[in-house]
Amino acid sequence: MTTATSWNITRCERHRDWNRYLGAVCPDPCDDCTSRPVFELDVPMVVQLKTGLRPLSHNDRFHWRAKAKKIRTIRQQVALHARNARIPAAQHITVTLHYQPSGRSVTDAPNLTATSKPAIDGLVDAGIVPDDTDPHVTERMPVIHPGKGDRRLWIEVEIQP
């Protein structure tokens, strides 16, 4: 099932951390508050395990054709989800990949960049940004959310002014 969620994110000197305010502006605004739209899109997990699917990793050793098919799947699905979420075109975005593994599996964040790169390419394919170079895209290190629950992989796309 595809989910696409959007909210505003607010930051200023008084609000030192990024704070989420679903569908609204900061409840305690000050003169320095800035609000930006953020979209959350599911990313497909493409590597089959006995216990389910997991994201693509730099440690995977696939034949080049099998790897290309997995990358194409991620890229096409993210582009489709971005179009369906009606993310507006922008000159600059900030992208963060999030992964919630199930159980006690150990994953290191830098390995997940093998999944975030095709996801960002999918955003370019959807026309969100003109290119995936530094002037248009800031990619944050992937975030891993340990704990019990279903596996989930998603990206947050923050539209920069």
Score class of each variant (00 low, 15 high):
T73W: 08
C26A: 06
H63D: 14
H81P: 02
R11H: 05
L80D: 02
M45T: 14
A109T: 05
D32C: 04
V95D: 00
E40N: 11
N8L: 07
W18A: 03
S57R: 15
D60M: 11
I74R: 10
N84P: 00
R11E: 02
R11I: 07
T113C: 08
P44L: 15
S57P: 00
A114T: 06
T113P: 03
R11N: 09
S105D: 08
A90C: 03
P88D: 11
R16I: 04
Q76V: 09
P110N: 05
I71Y: 09
Q76E: 12
V38H: 06
F62C: 09
E13M: 05
I71A: 13
P110Y: 06
P55Q: 12
D28F: 06
Y21E: 02
G23D: 04
L97A: 07
L22V: 01
N59A: 15
L80A: 11
I93Q: 03
T34H: 07
Q91L: 06
P55M: 13
R104K: 02
L49I: 09
L97E: 05
S35P: 01
L56V: 14
D108G: 02
D32Q: 12
H58K: 08
A90E: 03
A79I: 07
D31E: 14
C33L: 04
H92G: 00
Q48Y: 00
Q77S: 15
A109Q: 03
P88K: 05
Q77E: 15
I87C: 12
D31M: 04
A85G: 14
R75V: 10
L53C: 06
P37C: 06
A82L: 10
L112D: 04
A85F: 12
R20M: 00
Q91T: 09
Q91M: 09
H81V: 15
I74G: 06
K69E: 12
L56C: 13
K67P: 02
Q91D: 04
Y99M: 08
D108E: 07
R86K: 13
S35D: 08
A90N: 03
Y21S: 02
D60W: 10
A66G: 05
C33A: 09
K117M: 05
A90S: 13
A66I: 14
T94A: 02
N59M: 08
H58G: 05
P29S: 09
